[in-house]
Amino acid sequence: MNNRLKVLRAERNWSQAELAGQLDVSRQAINAIETGKHDPSLPLAFRIARLFEMTIEEIFDDGHE
């Protein structure tokens, strides 16, 4: 699944550690999500969306139209 997490994080000038701390997950989890090696659970996807004040669809893209 593609996502805009890295871009959104860069726009706010946040490190992976900063984002990880705000989401209460490990830095490795952020890295794995950004590189597409881990698809976050629905609760974590909602936390990410709330943090960036966006919808889940604006951040994550499953490739379907």
């Binding site: 490190s15 550690a17 900063e18 990880a20 701390g21 490990s26």
Partner: peptide, 8 residues
């Protein structure tokens, strides 16, 4: 706390 402090 900042995210980095929370992670620490």
């Amino acid at each position: 706390l900042s995210g980095e402090e929370r992670l620490k």
